[in-house]
Design a protein around this nucleic acid. Structure first.
Lengths: 213, 213
DNA sequence: CGACCAGTTGAGCTTGTTCAAGGCATGTGG
DNA sequence: CCACATGCCTTGAACAAGCTCAACTGGTCG
């Protein structure tokens, strides 16, 4: 480990199309992978939390595939390249697999869930990730997100996120207070929304095999 | 290279949660990464075309993260693990980076594009990928997709895909005939829809820096 | 001929967007 | 201390995009 450096909130850590150097570990703070359309529409592709790796790549791939911006002040640490310390390879591989899993969940949310489900699923995932990083305290998490950022993650407008949060609050499923979120009963919420099915019998439906239903 | 095996269309190549073995190369045919919600809603997370690798992973990661189903009959080839032939590592790394890039494009489509843009962007990407694989002939591609499958890729209903294809045909931007698609002028189509912006000035907008506008 | 699959079309409805305004807390300069 | 600006959240009303349900076409295959 090298000494950490800090990046102020709202600055780009990496810019799409620019070369990337060594991998970077987030020691503290939140960041986001972001992409824009020409007319200004914005999508947050994924969040980067403490413990996540930025810019880790399996070859001389000098080009950043997305920009990364700091959502808060960040403490960053240059991480050793996996070639230097072979013992780190499993850790890097796991980090990579997790990254991919989060992208796939994001696609599922955006493609097939409604606003209520997207919010619920997003916060459930966030709780899990923060718990993995040792940053979850019971049913309440602290975060730097505004409703606008949440909207940019889950592909809705700020207004609709606000209204849907209101619905969830009315249902006593979620409490939003700027800077933190409480899920009174995560398991109940998870059961309430339709989450991913891994049943092979369900998969058969994909193939148009209707004899099973 | 080993001898190819074949898998019939509509069968699972990999099942979510099951162990995966050696990486597999698609020699011919199309496949899809698929996920389902408990109530049957279906999302195609990404397409797998000839030349793509399935189940390549940087560690003893024995579990498939998504199911993969064959959309057509497939010819598959067990690919050598990258540990066995070091010279393959760059190729595998590039394959991995491309995979990630396609997932990110998918998130952008689903999160912030309307139906017309999603269709256009999807087919433009498909044309590029098939061209990379040496399978594009001018402005016309051959594919095994039904409108239902397209709908499952881009997160819409079959009916709406059908109507939007009708709009595009009216605009002379795209011609759908079962089994193949023609883009009379891909460049014009690409210019017509709002595609990804990589401009740093645009990125500044993300950070709420309004002095630049 | 009948069954089935892929595509097509219509009408009514739901979900989420847009535009606009206002509330509340915090911070800052006079 | 007050006036004013700013960031974040909240709310209303009108609208538009996409969904649902249902029916129908044309082609193919047994």
């Amino acid at each position: 480990m090298q000494r950490p450096r800090t990046v102020a909130g709202n600055l780009e850590v990496l810019v799409e199309g620019k070369p990337i150097g060594d991998p970077i570990l987030i020691v503290s703070g939140w960041a986001a992978r972001v992409r824009l359309l020409a007319d200004g529409r914005k999508q947050i592709l994924g969040l980067l939390l403490p413990g996540d790796l930025i810019g880790h790549c399996y070859q001389p791939c000098p080009i950043a595939i997305t920009s990364i911006i700091a959502l808060t002040n960040l403490e960053l640490c240059r991480a050793p390249s996996s070639e230097t310390y072979e013992s780190l390879q499993p850790a890097y591989a796991i980090s990579h697999s997790l990254d991919e899993a989060y992208l796939l969940s994001q696609i599922m949310r955006l493609g097939r869930m409604n606003a209520y489900e997207r919010l619920a699923d997003f916060f459930l995932e966030l709780f899990e990730r923060l718990a993995l990083a040792g940053l979850a305290a019971g049913n309440k998490i602290y975060h730097p997100l505004t409703q606008e950022m949440v909207a940019d993650v889950i592909g809705l407008t700020t207004v609709h996120v606000n209204r849907t949060l209101g619905l969830m609050r009315r249902d006593r499923e979620l409490i939003w207070e700027t800077g933190h979120v409480t899920l009174p009963d995560p398991d109940a919420l998870s059961a309430r929304i339709a989450r991913v099915s891994t049943k092979v019998t369900a998969l058969r439906r994909v193939t148009g095999d209707k004899t099973q239903e």
